[in-house]
Amino acid sequence: MSETEQLKGWKEIPIGGLILAPGNAREYKTGGWRTFKPVHHMDKCIHCLQCWMHCPDSAIKVEGGKFIAFNYDACKGCGICAKICPKKVQAITMEKEEK
C-alpha cells in the first residue's frame, strides 16, 4: 500500500500476518519504494523495446510494438531501462522522486 490513509488498524486485519484472499499481489503498489523515477522522452524514442525486455518488474507498457508508458504503480526505479536504452538515443532519464 502506498497511501497512508489506506492502511488499516490492528483490529481490522487478520491475525498472524495471514492473507485471507488469493491473487491480490497486484493490490500491493511497489511504486512507493522508488527514490528515482524513470522519465520517458517520446520524441527521442526509437521503440527498440530494449527497456521493455529488461525491466525486471514488467513496468513498461507496450502496444502495437510501441512504447506507451511506465506503470508507476509497479516500477521500483531501478534504472535498468535508462541504462539499457541505446547510448545514441537516451530516451529515458532518471529523476529524483518528489515525496
Binding site: G9, W10, I13
Partner: peptide
C-alpha cells in the same frame, strides 16, 4: 506498514 499492527495483536 503492517508488522507493528501484527505485534500489537
Amino acid at each position: 506498514d503492517y508488522y507493528f499492527e501484527h505485534k500489537r495483536q
